[in-house]
Design a protein around this nucleic acid. Structure first.
Length: 200
DNA sequence: TGGGCGATTCGCT
DNA sequence: GCGAATCGCCCAC
């Protein structure tokens, strides 16, 4: 159970806004177990990574640019970027005191709209539908058009939920600050992009 | 204005 | 396990 949910369960959405105004690593850990739906399609978040403005591996490290400007805007919004010229990746903008933070959503456990996601992905195996940042954006039909949108409005539906356990490890696919343990996941989940070195 | 590179994925070996 | 695919962004020239 995340600390935020424990403190805020039962409160209004407006009071919940403070959730995003914290360090990305805190938010990334708390998001494990939450459900995210886009147009009614989605599932439980089982893997995230944190990035912030003093982080050499972060897009925001060198300051605002046309691509990353959303990271420096209001929290609780979506930052979408193109990866390797092929895939889309989605982040939740969150920061405290200094802007430029975000949480990369790396994997979700599909629970709603399985058939739609299978069709979009061209696959049937639920474990392969959303087990990676590019995969889940394809399954949820996330594109540049969603960049900057608020997460508390349609087509998005976010809801807190419990995690069975928290796994922590180094982030994936980066070349800088590789030793910072800011990758989080649900312990034992079979829907993560890659196994965690150890589970906690 | 051009070249290098990336928070990835998939198919083939 | 390895490497190609593929293109927008960013910085250097």
């Amino acid at each position: 159970m995340s600390s935020f949910v424990a403190r805020h369960s039962g409160r209004s959405n407006a009071q919940r806004q403070g959730f995003w105004d914290r360090h990305p690593a805190e938010v990334a850990a708390d998001l494990i177990g939450w459900s995210v739906l886009v147009g009614g399609v989605g599932g439980r978040i089982v893997e995230t990574e944190a990035y912030h403005h003093e982080d050499p591996a972060s897009h925001s490290y060198s300051g605002p640019t046309p691509r990353n400007e959303v990271m420096f805007g209001p929290t609780g919004t979506l930052y979408v970027y193109r990866s390797y010229g092929i895939h889309w990746c989605m982040n939740f903008v969150c920061w405290a005191e200094a802007p430029g933070g975000a949480v990369l959503i790396r994997a979700i456990e599909p629970t709603a709209g399985l058939e739609i996601m299978s069709e979009r992905r061209g696959l049937g195996d639920p474990r392969a539908l959303c087990s990676g940042p590019g995969k889940l954006c394809q399954a949820l039909a996330i594109t540049r058009e969603h960049n900057g949108l608020a997460l508390d409005r349609p087509p998005f539906q976010l809801a807190p939920g419990p995690a069975r356990g928290l796994a922590v490890g180094p982030r994936i696919g980066i070349t800088k600050a590789v030793d910072v343990p800011w990758r989080f996941g649900e312990a034992g989940s079979k829907f993560v992009s890659r196994p965690f070195p150890k589970t906690a």
